[in-house]
């Protein structure tokens, strides 16, 4: 009977001793273990890959940074940029945008301001994480100077003005007429670890 998809027939034959296969088995096993270790490395590599992905797609509202606006200004249309902000638990600050929204032409540099007040009884360090929505707009939002580049400190009772200098690239698709810029002020976590560079 011919073996056909699981239909088997058997007869005795002389076969090489089992021991001769042990070496080959061990070699293949180590190779597979190496592959598994490679995938473990890939798991960790997903962290930087993911950040790159965010910047390419605007996922999480990740925005770009530029030295200056070198693009021509598109005076044929307006874009509304709205501002909002929040303070995360653990930072006794009050934080709010100075203006609700600005209207800009794509390519035109603008400055927006926020105010922060420390309500605590000691100096607190904070770090602002920035996020722009919708994602398609985030890829066209470039910061020239931003308080979110640095850790910021406020003394007890102190109020400071923070500003962000930005422009929207003329490549912004025409159907986007409004975008929202949000900052989340976290208590600073600087501990000398190299991952503390903020994404934005």
């Amino acid at each position: 009977m011919k073996l056909d998809k699981g239909f088997a027939d058997t007869k005795k034959t002389e076969v090489p001793a089992v021991a001769s296969r042990a070496g080959a088995n061990r070699r293949l096993a180590w190779l597979l273990a190496l592959v598994a270790a490679g995938f473990l490395g890939f798991g960790f590599a997903l962290v930087p890959l993911y950040n790159t992905f965010c910047h390419l797609t605007g996922f999480n509202g990740a925005t770009g940074t530029a030295a200056a606006a070198l693009t021509p200004v598109d005076r044929t249309r307006w874009v509304t940029v709205e501002f909002t902000g929040m303070v995360m638990p653990g930072l006794p600050w009050k934080f709010r945008p100075a203006q609700r929204r600005v209207r800009v032409h794509p390519g035109e540099t603008a400055i927006a301001r926020y105010y922060a007040t420390n309500l605590g009884d000691r100096t607190f360090d904070g770090r602002a994480i920035m996020s722009v929505s919708p994602e398609v707009a985030a890829t066209h939002f470039e910061k020239i100077e931003c308080f979110c580049f640095h850790q910021e400190a406020l003394e007890p009772g102190q109020t400071r003005e923070f500003s962000v200098e930005f422009f929207v690239t003329p490549g912004l698709p025409k159907y986007v007429t409004t975008m929202t810029l949000s900052y989340a002020f976290f208590p600073s976590v600087e501990r000398g670890d190299d991952r503390s560079q903020p994404r934005s």
């Binding site: 390419l56 605007g58 690239t169």
Partner: peptide, 16 residues
């Protein structure tokens, strides 16, 4: 995304 050249992103292409 490169602001200077205005390169089209993946999201733009989907919209198009």
């Amino acid at each position: 995304m490169n602001s200077e050249t205005g390169t089209e992103t993946c999201a733009d292409r989907v919209e198009r």
